[in-house]
Amino acid sequence: MAEPPAVPFVGAGPGDPGLLTVRGKTLLERAELVVHAGSLVNSELLDRYCESAERHSSIGMELEEIVGMIQSAYEEGRTVVRLHSGDPSIYGAALEQIDALATRNVPAYLVPGVTAAFAASATLGTQLTLNGVANHVAFTRPQGTTLEPANDHISEFVGMGDVTTCIYLGTHAVRETMDRLLDDGRDPSTPVTVVYHASWPDERIVTGTVETIADELSSSGISASALVIIGHVLSNGDYERSYLYGDWATGGTARETTTTTEHSTE
């Protein structure tokens, strides 16, 4: 019997089935077993692309159980897909599974997905970087069970001024995080937006500032499954036009300029 293909760890994207990559879709449609990240993956995506496959949620399973299930299916010659939410390279714990499979002679590889920060940026109609406003993006998480306080650098990122800070896995800790920013002397008027279930049908947006967002979020009832974005790209229209499209007139901001320059091909 021919050796089965290596096991792909596919990023399901942020929620909208249409944001699954073409490669991910193809792999799911061929799969006989899909081990997915439970409710973190939109059930509509599972029904649309792998309805005929055997499906198992990994929520509540130990690493050894997940790896053992994949190994057994692989050794039976079945086509397996491990489906993570978002992109498996960002807070996905994919590598420890891949390494564990390697010790069992089961090859695996990563297939990128659209991460929540990109879906949230699209929802908000902005960019995570804007010339003259933010030149850097930080993907981070707040201190807690997994992260020691000394390794929480959110305040440092916000203090840099030209960084857009995207906080994963931190909806429950927004008030504590904002309190630390205020205690560190960060500008209380810095814009903050929380996007719940970015790209899902029940997507919600809560806006505020470092000073107000905790109260706004508390009133909304949202306590999980959201991305927190801090930075001036959320409200500042005075960005500078990039140099990608040639020279343009002086004066005014990018959003104030509405004319387009035609370039001769001669």
Rank of each mutant, 00 (worst) to 15 (best):
S72A: 14
A73M: 01
A73I: 00
Y74I: 00
E76W: 00
E76V: 00
E76Y: 00
E76H: 07
E76D: 13
E76M: 10
E76K: 15
G77Y: 02
G77L: 01
R78D: 03
R78H: 02
R78F: 03
T79I: 12
V80N: 05
V81G: 03
R82T: 05
L83H: 06
H84Y: 12
S85V: 03
S85E: 08
G86I: 00
G86R: 02
D87F: 02
D87E: 03
D87N: 00
P88K: 04
S89W: 01
S89T: 15
S89F: 00
S89E: 04
I90N: 01
I90F: 07
Y91C: 03
Y91K: 03
Y91T: 10
Y91N: 07
G92I: 00
A93T: 12
A93F: 11
A93V: 10
A93Q: 08
A93D: 05
A94V: 13
A94P: 03
A94E: 11
A94H: 11
A94M: 14
A94L: 04
L95D: 12
L95N: 14
E96T: 04
Q97R: 08
Q97L: 07
L101D: 03
L101S: 08
L101F: 11
A102S: 15
A102D: 14
T103G: 06
R104C: 05
R104D: 07
N105H: 15
N105G: 08
V106D: 09
P107A: 13
P107M: 12
L110W: 02
L110T: 06
V111I: 13
P112F: 10
P112I: 05
G113M: 08
G113H: 08
G113P: 07
V114Q: 09
V114F: 03
V114C: 11
V114P: 04
T115C: 10
T115E: 01
A116R: 11
A117H: 09
F118D: 04
F118E: 06
F118H: 09
A119N: 13
A120Q: 09
A120V: 11
A120F: 09
S121M: 15
T123P: 06
L124M: 13
L124K: 11
L124A: 11
L124F: 09
G125I: 10
T126N: 09
Q127R: 13
L128Y: 06
T129D: 10
T129Y: 09
T129E: 13
T129F: 04
T129K: 07
L130E: 13
L130Q: 15
L130D: 10
L130Y: 06
N131M: 12
G132A: 05
A134I: 07
A134L: 05
N135G: 15
N135V: 09
N135W: 03
N135E: 14
H136P: 00
H136C: 11
H136L: 12
V137G: 09
A138G: 03
F139A: 07
T140R: 03
R141E: 12
R141W: 01
R141Y: 00
P142E: 08
P142M: 08
Q143M: 13
Q143K: 14
Q143T: 13
G144L: 07
T145R: 15
T145I: 08
T146F: 10
T146W: 10
L147D: 03
L147I: 15
E148Q: 14
E148W: 11
E148F: 05
A150V: 13
N151M: 07
